[in-house]
Simulated scan of single mutants.
Amino acid sequence: MESTIIKKLGKRVRKLRKAKGLSSDKLAELIGREGSFIRRLETGRMKNIPEDIEKIAQALGVSIAELLTTPEEKKEIELEFRTDLVTILVINGVPASGFEGGDTEIIDYLPTPREMLRGLPQERVAWVKVVGDSMEPKVSRGDLVLVADGSWVEVKNGDLVIAVMDGEKTLKRFYDKGNYILLVPENESYEPLMIPKDKLKETSLYLYKVLGILKRMQ
């Protein structure tokens, strides 16, 4: 484990040294060492972390923590210990009738502000990649929508939902019109879907409520 740390330290020292335009001999001079000391450090040929690490950090203009940790690693550590974030699955399409026991293809994981879950357990929500354009321009193909299992949330008129009916999935705005359900697209190229409630006795309709939208970077 320590040899791995020393190798990473050496690579980090070399990168920072070159970024400051210092030769290995010049860096060694700044810390009162020979050039061979820096070269051995940068090539991972030391057995232990050198006692001069504080001097090296000062010479390179960074803290010891910055010397031992890359920005990417620091970000990962910060995410791991942030209590305001939870890791949520990114899935390629929702199950037919809820997350519990449903088949889903996990394509990624996304740190998500806890407040976006609105108090729901994290296993009852997921990010879903949008594949259609029925809600353009509000939601575009490739965007991610954070959805909640419909059995755990109240779906109100005007809510954005993913509706699953007989295996078909669509992103629409939901309206309960009394005798029928109306699913309205934002894209004028698509017609609204009207589902008579008496038809629901013969078919299945499952709703996932959209809690948030993450726009795809252009």
Rank of each mutant, 00 (worst) to 15 (best):
T87E: 14
V184K: 15
L200F: 08
G102V: 09
K169G: 12
L200R: 02
L211Y: 02
L183P: 06
G150C: 03
A163Q: 04
K129S: 12
W152F: 15
Y190R: 04
P196W: 00
M165R: 15
R124T: 15
K215V: 03
P113A: 09
P121F: 00
K215S: 12
L117E: 10
G142S: 08
M194L: 08
L193W: 00
G132S: 15
K156E: 15
S134N: 01
N179Y: 00
T87Q: 13
K201I: 07
V130Y: 11
W127D: 05
D166I: 01
P137H: 06
E115G: 12
A126D: 08
W152M: 14
R216K: 15
G178P: 10
L146C: 05
S134F: 01
S204V: 06
R141V: 11
V161R: 02
K156W: 04
D176I: 01
A163D: 10
W127E: 03
I91T: 05
D198G: 13
G212R: 03
M194Y: 09
V130R: 05
T203E: 12
V210I: 10
L211I: 03
P196E: 07
V94C: 08
N92K: 15
L207H: 05
G212W: 04
E202F: 10
P185H: 02
L171F: 12
E136T: 14
V147S: 04
V153P: 11
I162N: 03
E186Y: 11
A148I: 04
Y180A: 13
S134D: 03
Q122G: 10
M116I: 11
N92W: 10
P137S: 07
T104D: 00
V131A: 14
Y109L: 10
E168P: 01
E105G: 09
P137C: 05
W127N: 03
I106T: 13
N179R: 00
A148E: 06
N92P: 05
E136N: 13
P185L: 01
L110A: 10
D143I: 02
L183E: 04
L120Y: 07
E154I: 11
R173Y: 09
S204P: 00
